[in-house]
Design a protein around this nucleic acid. Structure first.
Length: 218
DNA sequence: CCGGTGATGGACT
DNA sequence: GTCCATCACCGGA
């Protein structure tokens, strides 16, 4: 094989990569390339921002209240995608980690489109740097939705994580999680590549203001 | 640049 | 009925 034919992509990461402690996987996912070969064509994203969720003991995790039909994938084998629907219009993508049953996962929060730029552009967004900036836009750029929930990324299927270029420790930044109430009480489990423009802006989890219900106008 | 807020549907209590 | 692991758009400075 001529390795120079796909110099930047590398082999798909094996299941053993994901079947490790979630913080290790989160850190090591930075710089890797998530590729989805969908019906409309391939799009690949170099991951620049991720967030770790520890499972049933983690108040911020969907697994916190135990196994439900929606979260069943999280309780399964590492190396599968957990894709969930949020706010009535967005899809977000996680990769299940650790030992089976640990329900730990890494939320993919941001990346840089490195393949399929035209297709990603056609799926909306204004500036290229925003195409996969934020978990919902990342999923949208790649064309990930309900169909990919539970997909095995280690089985040679349409969704794979390629080796990419690992990021050295001194280029990895850590900070509080985004959009999770009580995130400050937890260790900083969000990791990103320092200085990358594709990292989503940090916003403190502002408690939703509760407005007293008023009767509908008119 | 910043903060406020509406859109919109499913999971869960 | 309430709560979202969000985003885009708007108006103000």
């Amino acid at each position: 094989m001529d390795a120079t034919l796909t110099p930047a992509r590398g082999d798909a990461l094996p299941r053993g990569f994901f079947a490790r402690p979630v913080l290790d996987v989160a850190r090591d996912l930075l710089g890797r390339v998530l590729r989805h070969d969908g019906e409309q064509g391939p799009v690949a994203v170099r991951l620049t921002e991720v967030e770790a969720y520890a499972g049933e003991d983690d108040p911020g995790s969907h697994a916190f209240r135990g196994r439900t039909p929606r979260t069943a994938v999280m309780f399964g084998e590492a190396g599968h995608a957990y894709v969930y629907f949020s706010y009535g219009m967005h899809w977000c993508t996680n990769l299940v980690c650790g030992e089976e049953g640990s329900a730990s996962a890494v939320l993919l929060r941001g990346g840089e489109v490195v393949e399929g730029l035209e297709l990603a552009r056609s799926r909306r967004a204004r500036r290229d740097v925003d195409l996969a900036r934020g978990p919902a836009r990342l999923a949208q750029a790649l064309g990930l939705a309900r169909d990919q929930d539970g997909a095995d990324v280690c089985a040679g299927g349409a969704l794979q994580v390629h080796a990419g270029v690992p990021v050295p420790d001194d280029a990895v930044a850590w900070g509080p999680r985004v959009g999770v109430s009580g995130a400050g009480a937890l260790p900083p489990w969000r990791a990103w590549v320092a200085g990358e423009p594709t990292v989503s802006p940090y916003r403190a989890a502002a408690p939703r203001r509760r407005e007293p219900r008023r009767p509908p106008a008119r």
